[in-house]
Design a protein around this nucleic acid. Structure first.
Lengths: 224, 224
DNA sequence: CCGAATCTTTACGGGACCCTTACGCCAAAC
DNA sequence: GTTTGGCGTAAGGGTCCCGTAAAGATTCGG
């Protein structure tokens, strides 16, 4: 998540936030009212929109509603009103999260990261590259250094689940339950066999795996 | 809240709900039985799960229990049974809300919005930064100054509990009860061992800890 | 009906982890 | 000064977990 469109009519707050967000590595553009916000969002769609509800020309929820007619761009709402009805209204209009003023920079950054994580699975579909491996989750194919590798159904089932949760720890129970079925949750020896086979096919040095990592006592993890 | 996984074995109801939910802006995927529901929830985690209790292959509460072993995904239960014992059982298994058939679309949409608002703070629990430490509670990873640290299951169990309650005091009894089990509430020497090991791995100066703080006679606290 | 690929089962060696025991330190109470 | 309780550290043994090999069972296509 790189670019943020910041919409607020208080110049000082905008300037302060812009400096701090840019220091965190975000590219920040700004708008001071709803009309300019809509224009900016359409001409240069940001990765996330931070929107104050109190704008001079139109209600913030109205801005959200218009945006939602054509985009699913994540929207974080800033509101000075503490009443929950405003928040509900904004969320129902299509906002993704809200922050009540006054707020700390830390809180806004946390919300940005949260929205970022949530939008991650959206672009999850496609080819995953890990070292010399190319894994296409949709096509169910995998290549190593350009060469196609053949996997058996079970092998693919295990690898697919791990790659879909790449970076995250996946418990042995979860793998067994998803690939073999809930009845097999206890049969951890199956996993040892298939993880070993996968490593022999995927890893350069199966004895020192770099992608298919064991977390002793907890589960397995696919590292890119 | 974008995506909903809809689990029911009545095709007409599923089709009707899917059309209506998609008209409301949700991305809807469906499953007709428990096994497929678990597989779908694992491979493409939705933002919320709508689950009928009467499934052909397994009890709905069993589906909830299995999901709850690895995810806190919000779950709304549908049930044709009016008895309150079913409701209690499902909620105890880990469901978030409950709708009795027959129900109106408006009611389900209201529950979805309610669960959505409630679940946001939970999702915020992502990456916690503390000094040169980066702790990802979801992925079960921890880095210090960019370098990955390996923790054993017990070490991770203790750290996870403390980080989830960061800033707050956690009693020794609570840690022992959560990580080792209620029987071990008195075995405080376990804690001394593992707190020591954690400090050696996490703290710059294990003798003068800055994150893993002892509150003599009370418990431990994780400070950011 | 046969054969090959895949899945399951069994067995075993090595290593990591957990628990246990023992001891040193510090501070507060007597 | 001595004692006592709580906390931290070190080391060793036993147990569980993981990786590997190999053979039997099952499935599937020809």
């Amino acid at each position: 998540m790189r670019s943020v469109l910041l919409v607020d009519d208080e110049p000082q707050l905008v300037r302060a936030l812009q400096i701090n967000l840019e220091a965190e590595g975000y590219a920040v553009t700004t708008a001071a009212d709803g009309a300019n916000a809509l224009r900016a969002a359409a001409s240069q769609p940001p990765d996330v929109l931070v929107l104050d509800l109190g704008l001079p020309d139109m209600d913030g929820t109205e801005v959200i509603r218009r945006l939602r007619t054509w985009t699913e761009l994540p929207i974080i709402v800033l509101s000075a009103r503490h009443g929950s009805s405003d928040k509900v209204e904004a969320l129902d209009a299509g906002a993704d999260d809200y922050v009540t003023k006054p707020f700390g920079l830390d809180e806004l950054l946390a919300r940005l990261r949260a929205v970022e994580r949530r939008s991650w699975p959206v672009r999850e579909a496609g080819v995953v590259e890990a070292g010399d491996l190319q894994i296409d989750l949709m096509a169910a194919t995998i290549s190593r250094a350009g060469r196609r590798i053949r996997l058996t159904p079970r092998e693919w089932g295990v690898l697919q689940l791990l790659v879909e949760n790449r970076g995250r720890l996946v418990s042995q129970q979860q793998i067994l339950s998803e690939v073999w079925g809930p009845v097999y949750e206890k049969e951890t020896h199956y996993l040892r066999i298939y993880v070993g086979q996968l490593r022999r096919k995927l890893e350069q040095d199966p004895a020192n795996p770099r992608h298919l990592i064991t977390e002793p006592g907890m589960g397995y993890r696919f590292e890119i």
